[in-house]
Amino acid sequence: LPPPAKKPLTKIVSHLLVAEPEKIYAMPDPSMPESDIKALTTLCDLADRELVVIIGWAKHIPGFSSLSLGDQMSLLQSAWMEILILSIVFRSLPYEDELVYAEDYVMDEEHSRLTGLLDLYVSILQLVRKYKKLKVEKEEFVTLKAIALANSDSMHIEDVESVQKLQDALHEALQDYESCQHTEDPRRAGKLLMTLPLLRQTATKAIQHFYSIKMQGKVPMHKLFLEMLEAKV
């Protein structure tokens, strides 16, 4: 007998692994004197470039591109900060009490305090600790990122059934992965999904914080970042 064919659901996880974007760097401007404004400018510029990458990545999620353009926009407008934060969290896993915004931009508690990002630092670190405890793997992280996008609870979805179909496919991919790879913990998929409320809460805080920075007008922000920030409030 031929070996049983690999389930297409496992294929989703391997596909998401391949679709993972290349690292991008913060590259702080060396000619600018160190200040909170410089740190925030660096982070907003990094976020703007990461957004371009996230939009390209989303198109590689199986099923995403079959949604209407309007629904693709709505999901991204709701979930982009969750996706950004989840990536920071995953990069920070090998570190101790530091947030890896980029490989060349790591912030500790003191740096976060000086930049006015202490609240955000504390929240993101709470997420890091949860995933450290779970020893989350790259396969799980890429699937969770896609789930965060599909499950972003946008109020503007036109074709709810198609978005539900995408959520179901990704949810099933996670469950399928866990039932093959983590037979020792039948509740692992649930544990991972239960981290999403804290991710949503943290992203909401981050959006509010960066929106108030935008209103103060001291930090230059690129157009895509501004566009996405405005879509959230």
Partner: peptide
């Protein structure tokens, strides 16, 4: 959509989307 021009444009530039 007019308000979200860049997102709209980036999504329209297709790059081998995958369907279920």
């Amino acid at each position: 959509k007019e308000k979200h021009k860049i997102l709209h444009r980036l999504l329209q530039n297709s790059s081998s989307p995958v369907d279920l």
